[in-house]
Structures are given as structure tokens and as C-alpha cells.
Design a binder for these strands. Structure first.
Lengths: 155, 155
DNA sequence: CGGGATATCATGGGACTTCATGGGTTTCAA
DNA sequence: TTGAAACCCATGAAGTCCCATGATATCCCG
């Protein structure tokens, strides 16, 4: 299985607050970190939940380590990154419980849509995600990526 | 076997949604990345499905990795690229199932035509591909390619 | 060089497994 | 002790695996 979170998946949130984590996402998480753990937090820019693997969070932590101690920059970074994180575990059926605070933040009630973003993913209220997608499309936002030099060629 | 996707191949889509991946395409995919995985997404310009190899996707991912974290540019790139991608696997008989959303997008029902595009390929409704080809021909579109220095020659 | 044996390929269908989802029961800490 | 979280089981739908067939292409040997 791939190592990246891809595609969009809509799932039910049951009355206990459980959601199935997409099987392909589970495979990525298990593959890269071994355990059934996910880190969740409020997305900075969007009304959505951001999902991180343990490995990805460690990388964030590592890049904070490069900031000098006793600076506002470092304090802010640590505060922003770590205080908002919820550690969540999915069970043998592949389901996790969405923390109520995050569900409220994202406006999720009885359905949730997972959106793969490569090494991260987001969890949205499906209507909000549709609105977001439509707006992006209407604004004509489109990313152009630089071609990379192929192996063996000069940059 | 070659390393590039070439030619056009028409195949049946059965009632389970399965299609055979052209054997020559399978050889390219297996040869370059080892696993039986294909990444599919809506083509940006045409009503067709675009097919990428794991390696090709990794190159896209790598060029995104070079963008700074927590920037709009990066978030947008991740969103555009990864949310639209479906990871698909072909079985020992060489068949994959086309995600319903992509089949609808491309207007594919019971037959699909694979069109090799070098390092990528497209999957079309055969009639739509014919129309597209005719239009291109009528418009007299033609590509001019820059000559590259041959191996061993000065640039 | 020809023609028969052999391998590969696309395609169909049935059996089996995985997945998402609902509901019940146990566990445990506040 | 009571409510939330963890665990367990059941079910239908979808996906995967396995085997069979006919067609085409490839191989091989006389």
C-alpha cells in the first residue's frame, strides 16, 4: 500500500461519536509508525480537523528544536503545535472517537469527510468541504509545480 | 519491455467495475516501482481519467515537500494534488476497479480506452477520445519539440 | 519454413475476505 | 455508580482472489 493519504472518503459518525478511519489511511498509519495512533488538532486555516501521524508530529517537533530557547518564536511554536493536539487511537474495527471539541470546531455532526493531503489529512463536515472546494475552483486557484530534474540530469 | 506508456487499448468494463490494465502498461508500472499500484485522478483539461505511476506521484510529492510548512502555497498544493488522487491496485489477473466517481467524470460505462502518454496515461470513454482526436486533427494542433543534445555531445 | 505445442492475455463468474456500520457488553476511572 | 471508552459480535455491500475459457501471440522442432 501507498505511503500517502489520498482521495476523499465520507463516513458516518454514530451516536457514540465513532467514525471509521478509511482503511487506506489505516494502512499508511500502521505502515509508518506501527501503532494505531493518530494525532488530531484544529486546522490553522480551515474549519476542519487536521490529522497527523506520529512520525509527522515528530518531524514538526524536530523543526521546533532548531529554534533558540527562550524566544517568543519558540514559545509560540511550541504552544501552537502541542497544546492543541489530541492523541487518538483506533480500535480493531478501525474506528476512532472524535473528540467533542474538535467535532464542534469543524461543525461535524453525523457525517465526516476525510481528505487525504499526502503526509497529513483533514476531516471535514462534508458540506463545508464542498463549499471550500467550490470556492477554490471558482477562484481559479490552481497550483503549478516546478518540474524536478530527473535522476542523473543537472538541476 | 519499454518504460513508457504508449499506444491505445480498448477494454471492457465488467458489471463489477473491473477493467484489465493493458499488459504493456502493467509491465511499465511493475518495472519502475515494484508494486501493482496505480494513482488515478480527474484530468485537469479533458473529460478523462489520468493515470500516474507511484514514482511519478512521488515526484509530485517531492516538489511539494520543498515548499515551506504553514504556507497557503503548500496547503493549496497538497489539497489540489492529493485530495483528487485515488490509489488503485490491480490484481493477479491484471485488473483494477475504476472508482465510480472517476468513471462518472469520464463518462465511462462499459468500455474504456487507455491512451499512453509517455510517463502518464489517460483513460477515456472511447467515443470521447475519438471526438477529441478528431478535433485536435481538425484544429491542426501539432507539437514542436526542442532538440536535446545527444548523449556524449556538448550541449 | 511450417505447423503444432505452449504461453500470454482479456474476460466471465463464483467463492471468499475485507470494510463500514450498528448494536450489545464489559471495563474503568471519576 | 454512572457515563464514557474499549471490546466483541453481526450484517450487507464492496472488493479481492481463484479458477475457467477462448483468442491471440510466441516458441520450437522437425
Amino acid at each position: 500500500m501507498g505511503r500517502l493519504f489520498t482521495s476523499r472518503h465520507i463516513f458516518k459518525v454514530d451516536k457514540k461519536g465513532r467514525v471509521s478511519v478509511p482503511a487506506s489511511f489505516r494502512a499508511v498509519i500502521q505502515g509508518e509508525s506501527g501503532g494505531p495512533y493518530i494525532y488530531l488538532r484544529e486546522s490553522q486555516g480551515e474549519p476542519a480537523i487536521e490529522g497527523l501521524t506520529p512520525t509527522y508530529l515528530e518531524e514538526l517537533a524536530a523543526s521546533i528544536e532548531h529554534l533558540d530557547h527562550n524566544t517568543d518564536e519558540r514559545d509560540n511554536a511550541e504552544f501552537d503545535v502541542f497544546t492543541s493536539i489530541h492523541e487518538v487511537r483506533f480500535d480493531d474495527d478501525g474506528r476512532m472517537i472524535l473528540p467533542a471539541a474538535l467535532r464542534d470546531f469543524a461543525g461535524i455532526t453525523d457525517t465526516a469527510e476525510f481528505a487525504g493531503m499526502g503526509r497529513r489529512f483533514m476531516i471535514w463536515n462534508p458540506d463545508a468541504l464542498k463549499r471550500h472546494t467550490d470556492e477554490r475552483r471558482k477562484a481559479g486557484k490552481r497550483v503549478t509545480l516546478k518540474a524536478l530534474p530527473r535522476r542523473g540530469e543537472p538541476a
